[in-house]
């Protein structure tokens, strides 16, 4: 169980991030929660591909026998860029809402009801 440390960290980070998203009222705080959630998922993907004693999958000066799995790294690259795109769009929404509503408190941003 101890050796599953990164995966346990993934669970902990996910829960912290979800708690930030659910309990915090400030929009930017919620977005920070989303950033942490994204990082947690990235960490999950990377630790799936780790092999004990493996080296990075780059043929520079390495024995080819024990390389870590490369696919999760490729997926995570994609996921990181998607993450930055998401944050940029979310933050621009927050800025516009601040301009129009004068508040970024989630309890105030509820003109759309019923």
């Amino acid at each position: 169980m101890f050796w599953n440390l990164p995966l346990i960290a993934v669970v902990a980070l996910t829960i912290i991030a979800l708690a930030t998203i659910v309990f915090k009222k400030n929009l930017i705080k919620v977005f920070l929660g989303i950033v942490i959630l994204e990082s947690a998922v990235n960490l999950f993907l990377i630790s799936l591909g780790y092999r004990e004693g493996g080296i990075a999958p780059i043929y520079t000066n390495a024995p080819s026998s024990a390389m870590v799995l490369p696919t999760p790294q490729a997926l995570t690259l994609t996921s990181i860029v998607i993450g930055v795109a998401t944050s940029a769009l979310l933050l621009s929404f927050a800025i516009i809402i601040w301009k129009k509503y004068g508040s970024i408190d989630i309890e105030m941003i509820r003109r759309l009801k019923e």
């Binding site: 043929y59 520079t60 000066n61 390495a62 024995p63 080819s64």
Partner: peptide, 13 residues
């Protein structure tokens, strides 16, 4: 262009 084959195995490339 960029079309050289690479030698298999560890090498700086």
């Amino acid at each position: 262009l960029f079309g050289m084959p690479v030698i298999p195995g560890p090498n700086p490339g």
